[in-house]
Design a binder for these strands. Sequence first.
DNA 1: AGTAGTGGGTTGGATTATCCAACCCAGCAG
DNA 2: CTGCTGGGTTGGATAATCCAACCCACTACT
Lengths: 154, 154
Amino acid sequence: MTSSSARECSIANALAVVGERWSLLVLREVLLGNLRFDAIAAATGGSRDILATRLRTLVEAGVLERRLYSEQPQRYEYLPTQAGRALQPVLLALMEWGDRYVTQGPPPTVWEHSCGAELHLAAVCAACGAPVGSGESRLVRLGGVDRSSRSEPE
Amino acid sequence: MTSSSARECSIANALAVVGERWSLLVLREVLLGNLRFDAIAAATGGSRDILATRLRTLVEAGVLERRLYSEQPQRYEYLPTQAGRALQPVLLALMEWGDRYVTQGPPPTVWEHSCGAELHLAAVCAACGAPVGSGESRLVRLGGVDRSSRSEPE
DNA sequence: AGTAGTGGGTTGGATTATCCAACCCAGCAG
DNA sequence: CTGCTGGGTTGGATAATCCAACCCACTACT
């Protein structure tokens, strides 16, 4: 996975934490308030053994927190940490894209501004504030090795 | 997968298309202008057989387009479609989260605009066109069940 | 002509991951 | 004392991934 020639990138790092199967669906449920194991298993449709593994790794990664909510009998629930809540834009971006390009029919969910119009996530330039097309951007590697995407690397 | 009790959701639908291993990294490269098979394989670090499979499914899903760029010898490259370009917010959201919560030290790579400034993710109002602060938005679920969720439980 | 290199993949075999149903255990409730 | 709930674990089958090696059509070097 961590091949020496592979691009070093926070997208890949993020996916290493939440990119496995079911992880983002688990996050979706937890952010919706479905905190208990059985509820998560039912709502995601994932098998219980994998979900148990995912929940464990997400807790270890600091994305979720496992909390005892009943002493007798012992019962646990999963809460989002700050890092977990910070994944909301990722889920929102996926939802918007799925609404538009995958889901048949009208978007089941709409994100709207307080003025009533629809909201969308967009990549904007920090300086111009303008929306950015795909050809107008590039990844720049900091810290010595500048690996521009347009030129051939080595 | 398509369990009858699982939540119907565009997040899950989106992940069914681009949620497999390497898919989003392939998209990252293509959006950066790395269009050729060998370049994608080198930059992502994925094995060539899986990347060939991913590229095929992404083309079938309408996210990429396979185009002949040389007749003799026959050479192909992969271009993002409109749906592919629309995934940029997903990648940017993942990168921002990875920068903040996974990657140690400063961001190894920065996505920058052609003007030199950094790109970042923003919620923009379709009517106003203005950036939107937290608290001014809400999710509306159409089609019967209105599951209104607070924008940020902080 | 022979050799090496490039681009875009396939193939085979080993290793992991995922799926699914069944099971376990503790604490209740009838 | 039987069954139900919550939160998992176990075993075995199936699918996905990894890795190195190979293939083919062409071009470039010697």
